[in-house]
Amino acid sequence: MQTPTIAGSAQPRLARGVRFQTDSKTGNSVLLFPEGVLELNETAQDIVSRCDGRTVGEIIHTLAEEYDIDAQVLGADVQETLADLQRRKLIELT
């Protein structure tokens, strides 16, 4: 399946009613929403914690610098994760 490309200028934010917090049992991050819990892997956690008004381009740039990874390689991961979260209606793009 082809991953739809999200514009670098889009600003991802948590959708209404979605909470991002730490699961005290595991120390991992989770998204809580009506009737559900999604446990986030490290990549998703890094991305979601930066969905605070920053653009997709800015998120990719910060993470690439922080982890010293090529922005193009990382960009694909970020795109894929955001598309998945958007499909689950856990984030919105503005």
């Binding site: 699961d23 049992k25 989770v30 809580l32 819990v37």
Partner: peptide
């Protein structure tokens, strides 16, 4: 319940 791990 929260101490037991309940999230919802």
């Amino acid at each position: 319940a929260a101490a037991l791990g309940v999230l919802q």
